[in-house]
């Protein structure tokens, strides 16, 4: 992982900066994609983060983790773009096809696909505020403290926001289908790999 001690050559030199930042682009794009649920906007967010990173390199403290810092920039740009967007998330149209598990019947496969679509629709309905904390926790695996640093909010706020996000997701997934909990619905998505 690059640290601030690697940064000096990158200041004012596009080629050096590119070498430094390139390993961070894919992860940043993917987290922006999950927050925005829109590939075009995710690309914009990463490119904006690139510009901010280039401008802000000199302010980064020695020993700082460049990757974590760049991730923060991308998350914040994604949130900013989410607040300004005028069109609905479009990732639902771009979900990758799911391979059929050997134990699944065609009917089960279809049900799993519908459930996945329903999950992503529920995620898309969530306010960006809540989707972001879910992505940082369940995609990036960040701790409360790390999420708090990334979003510049107190750790207590992270806890309450995560709780609210899970509750809202639950409400959307069980709307009109009270018999099945969101946990059961999610378990159906990854059969055989979810511990009960």
């Amino acid at each position: 992982m690059a640290t601030a001690s690697d940064l000096q050559p990158a200041c004012g030199d596009e080629a050096s900066f590119r070498t430094l930042v390139e390993p961070c682009l894919g992860p940043a794009y993917r987290v922006a994609l999950l927050i925005l649920l829109d590939r075009d906007l995710a690309r914009d967010a990463v490119q904006e983060a690139l510009l901010r990173a280039y401008r802000g390199l000199g302010k980064l403290r020695a020993g700082s983790n460049f990757g974590a810092w760049f991730n923060r920039l991308a998350v914040n740009e994604a949130r900013r773009l989410a607040g300004r967007r005028q069109r609905q998330p479009v990732l639902l149209e771009q979900l990758p096809e799911i391979a059929t598990a050997p134990w699944e019947s065609p009917e089960e496969h279809l049900l799993a696909r519908e459930d996945r679509t329903r999950l992503w629709a529920a995620l898309a309905e969530l306010d960006e505020l809540y989707r972001t904390v879910l992505v940082l926790r369940y995609y990036q695996g960040l701790t409360d403290t790390e999420i708090a640093e990334a979003l510049a909010i107190p750790p207590g706020t992270v806890k309450s926001r995560l709780h609210a996000a899970r509750q809202r997701l639950h409400d959307r997934l069980t709307r009109g289908d009270g018999a099945m909990s969101w946990g059961d619905r999610l378990r159906k998505l990854v059969p055989g790999r979810v511990s009960r």
């Binding site: 590939r39 369940y138 995609y139 990854v190």
Partner: peptide, 28 residues
Amino acid sequence: NEQALSQELHRVADAAPVPADLFLPGLL
């Protein structure tokens, strides 16, 4: 259920192709 959510997020995000032109020549 958190694990299932995590797996689904990884399944979709990790399968998404990363655009090759994120770092545009001359962007900076």
